[in-house]
Design a protein around this nucleic acid. Structure first.
Lengths: 125, 125
DNA sequence: CATTATAGTTAGCATAAGCTAACTTGTCAA
DNA sequence: TTGACAAGTTAGCTTATGCTAACTATAATG
């Protein structure tokens, strides 16, 4: 099974929380996303089964190498889309919200094109 | 119930097919989208219940005013996103594919910002 | 008129992903 | 040691949305 939008959101959340604290638990993920413990529990189970996260003996969640790559990929899309939108004059909050929904659906090609655009012409973001 | 990505795709398809032919049937929608007859049947039922489409005695599908507005809104997003991406150097096919997935998640604010951008600076699309 | 093809519907299955209720487990303090 | 709280899991519900199989209804054809 390949993960989808939902799985990517969990992955991204773990990635973001891992940058603030080295001890991320399911409860933290649920709080951040506004989801219940059972929802998080199942989602983490699927991510584990897919080899994207692992938990240590204390229940702390870590991304595997693949999981980290995948999370980073999504996070980069998020950042780039936010940048693109704010550069077009969208307020930061709206840009972030849109980016959050869209990040899952942006192809590599289009992502690269946007990236090249900023590298070429610079930006104010 | 408010329609979602799936419902929007049906609506947009009906809109597109209606521009080519004035007699759009469920079977046409299914063929265009690659979905089965029962899937289309149910989806149309929901769209009818939401007052977005109607069928005449012969089973031909028409968008209501609200349905047309909604379809147009999505279609505009599709066109604008395609334009944005091709302007960034993405090939037309990829741009269209990305636009098709993303069109459902673009806020009014960001849509307007992109539109203003093209009005201001022109484009080659 | 009977057969066949086309279109649509109904019934029911599957998966994804949210939820609540209730259980388990582990830690910590009285 | 016991009682309580916190974290996680299990069971089972719900909705959305795809599917197939099988039925119905209509229209066209021999």
């Amino acid at each position: 099974m390949t993960i989808r939008e939902s799985g990517e959101m969990y992955l991204e959340t773990i990635y973001i929380l891992s940058q603030k604290s080295s001890s991320v638990r399911g409860i933290d993920v649920g709080e951040y996303m506004g989801f219940s413990k059972p929802s998080v529990s199942r989602a983490l189970g699927l991510l584990k089964k897919d080899g994207l996260v692992v938990t240590d003996g204390q229940g702390f969640i870590k991304l595997t190498e693949t999981g980290e790559e995948r999370a980073q990929r999504i996070y980069e899309r998020h950042q780039l889309l936010s940048l693109l939108f704010t550069n077009l004059g969208v307020d930061a909050e709206t840009a972030a919200e849109d980016a959050c929904r869209i990040e899952h659906y942006l192809s590599d090609k289009t992502f690269d094109a946007i990236k090249r655009h900023f590298e070429q012409y610079g930006h104010r973001g």
